[in-house]
Computed example of a mutant assay.
Amino acid sequence: MRSLESPVVAVDLFCGAGGLSLGLKQAGVRVAAGVDLDPACRYPFERNLKAKYLLKDVAKLTGEDLQQLWGDAEYRLLAGCAPCQPFSSHRRGADTSNEENWDLLSHFGRLIKDTVPHFVTMENVSRLKRMPVFTRFVETLIELGYEVDFGILYGPEFGLPQERRRLVLVASRIGFISLPRGSKKKFRTVRDTIEKLPPLQSGESDPNDVLHTARQLSPINLRRIKASKPGGTWRDWPEELVAPCHKKSSGSSFQAFYGRMLWDAPSPTITTQAYNLGTGRFGHPAQDRSLTLREAAMLQGFPRTYRFVPPTERPSMNTVGRLIGNAVPPVFGKAVGREFLELVRLQEGKG
């Protein structure tokens, strides 16, 4: 008889704080290991996933390394989200062609060639779909005999309380595979997700959760948030509060900056600076402050109990904000993990 452990075992490249791995685990996939170059990822990955963390540059990872991590897995899954900075819409037309991160997706393809796992999944920003490096990645999979499907998934349709659209790819060499379909018609909202957290003022902390700390606002930003309406713009403010960037000809592109979220809608896309009022619509819907790291993590789909730093350590806003904003929302990992497990069930049912 088969062990009660999952027949599908994953290695997560560019694993970050473990968002994709958490979703795969929630689906029933066994996560053997995560690989990342960022030392700050080790604690949250090992603490929450109870899996091995390999601090290593994926560009230097070998097929032998992966085979050792998978061990004697019945079905091997290679998952990952290559750093998306070169493809991000926030780059606003900057020439990123010389950035080394462009090549990380090619290393993902190299490792697939070297190991030919049963399944592959990849997640990244939507714009990558139009890039030659992605076309080459798909062509590599097809040449290796994989069935491939990819497209843009919308977070709220999968239960994510956030307006996030991401490119997701799934590939299988044991049978036809297709992207999961979102089924949620009533979207989770900001209110559903963070309303029950203890209220805070600017600069205050929850003594029971170091991540639930509100950044101290400057006097003018405190006046701005008090003058802001949920879902409104800087045009709602008195003239003396309007920022210099808003007065430029490009100011219409920044109407959400310093704005409040709406209670009864999904949040805007959570970025690495979601704790910073001046970088987006990251004002609390009702309290006069910006989001806390805990609120940002929960809107990204992490459970309230997810730990990003040891209990005795005070978190760095920059570091933990980066881990949260760069994470794959677990709902996407859970959805694709279910597709792989269902395919295994169907294949074994034919035997």
Rank of each mutant, 00 (worst) to 15 (best):
R136G: 12
A286H: 13
R260V: 07
V344Q: 01
K113L: 13
S106G: 13
Q68P: 00
V336T: 11
N221L: 04
G349W: 07
L54E: 08
G23D: 09
V168A: 03
T269G: 06
L299K: 07
V11N: 04
L141E: 03
Q216M: 15
L22A: 10
E239N: 10
N276A: 12
N326A: 11
D72C: 13
V8N: 07
E64G: 11
S218C: 06
A73G: 13
Y53C: 01
A286C: 09
R260P: 02
L299A: 07
S106M: 01
V133H: 05
P268T: 14
K185H: 11
V344S: 02
V116Q: 14
S88Y: 08
E240W: 06
I225G: 00
V242Q: 07
E5G: 14
Q85F: 04
D12N: 04
R165E: 15
E239W: 02
Q26M: 14
L262H: 01
A79M: 06
R164V: 04
R76C: 12
L217R: 00
L346Q: 15
D288C: 12
G278I: 08
L22R: 12
R314S: 13
R47G: 03
P161H: 13
T189D: 04
R223I: 07
L54T: 03
L61Y: 09
A73W: 02
G71S: 13
V168D: 10
Q287H: 06
R2I: 09
R164I: 04
D192P: 06
Q26F: 09
F137I: 02
D65T: 08
P266F: 05
F137K: 09
G175K: 11
S205Y: 10
T272Y: 06
G259C: 00
Q287A: 07
N98W: 13
V116T: 14
G280N: 01
C84H: 05
L128G: 09
G349P: 04
N98D: 14
V8K: 00
G203H: 00
R164Q: 09
A40V: 05
N48P: 05
A40Y: 11
L341A: 05
